[in-house]
């Protein structure tokens, strides 16, 4: 039944090449988006816990804004609205980016910054879950707040939240499909294109579904390995359970109504 994927399309490529190119954009978006999200998420998450008012309020604002606007709306804001509200020269430069980049860059910013707000909350929860004695011991040794965060708090908090970061990894790669709404030809968009060109809807989306499932498995396995690699010797393993991922999946699904409709 997947035979049709190996037939030639109108542009001379095979349909499977369309899928693979879509997969490439999906992976690129998820991968680079993840590092943006992780970097900003850690900084903002720390910001949520510091005593400095300015930092903690700024971090709080960031989280509330980016976490509470639906991903699809954020996608549109970056793609349609941003070029209009920045100075003209910059706006024109954005609009004149060559095709894949004009969609890819806003999608990258959107997913990176949105996922960052979710990671920030995980980081904050991880920091707050540490025993108070850790910070007291660090202060008693004369470590300043930078060194305390850098060498005592953050390394422990990140280890603690590896399981919940797993569901954020899953989340960002699934949310990449929202990028089709601003014209990025990622995996779901390519599947739709194939289905329109061949009328083999089941085959096209079946193939995409299998690829998404494989990616999920790979991500899950990778995170399990990471969890094992950073585990502190002598401590009991933190449970990396499927239920946790499912529970954490709720909000992602809700954030995708628009994309779901397009796919249907």
């Amino acid at each position: 039944m997947f035979g049709v994927l190996f037939e030639q399309a109108a542009d001379g490529q095979r349909y499977i090449d369309w899928l693979l190119s879509g997969l490439g954009w999906t992976l690129a978006l998820a991968f680079f988006g993840w590092w943006i999200a992780f970097g900003i998420g850690v900084v903002v998450g720390i910001g949520r816990t510091v005593h400095n008012r300015v930092f903690s309020i700024a971090a709080r604002l960031y989280v509330e804004i980016f976490r509470n606007i639906p991903v699809l709306v954020q996608m549109f804001l970056w793609y349609f609205v941003l070029p209009e509200v920045v100075p003209n020269a910059l706006g024109n430069a954005i609009k004149q980016m060559p095709p894949p980049w004009a969609s890819f860059v806003p999608a990258l910013l959107c997913l990176g910054l949105y996922t960052a707000s979710r990671i920030a909350e995980q980081v904050r929860a991880g920091i707050e879950a540490l025993p108070k004695g850790q910070i007291e011991a660090a202060s008693a040794l004369g470590l300043g707040s930078y060194a305390t965060y850098r060498y005592v708090i953050v390394p422990q908090a990140l280890r603690l939240i590896v399981p919940s970061l797993t569901s954020e990894v899953m989340g960002i790669y699934k949310n990449t499909s929202v990028a089709l709404t601003i014209g990025l030809m990622e995996l779901t968009a390519q599947a739709r294109q194939i289905s329109e060109a061949t009328f083999q809807t089941f085959t096209a989306f079946g193939a995409a579904t299998i690829i998404y499932l494989c990616l999920a498995l790979v991500a899950y396995q990778a995170m399990t390995l990471i969890d094992r690699a950073v585990r502190i010797p002598g401590t009991t393993p933190a449970k990396l359970t499927v239920e946790q991922d499912l529970a954490a999946d709720g909000p992602h699904v809700e954030n995708l109504p628009g994309a779901m409709e397009v796919v249907k």
Binding site: Q134, E136, A138, L141, Y151, P155, Q156, R159, I232
Partner: peptide, 17 residues
């Protein structure tokens, strides 16, 4: 000042990582 004063806690508070 804290550099000159060492403190030992009931719950050890070693850095586990």
């Amino acid at each position: 000042v804290r550099c000159e004063v060492g403190m030992v806690f009931q719950s050890f508070n070693l850095f586990p990582h």
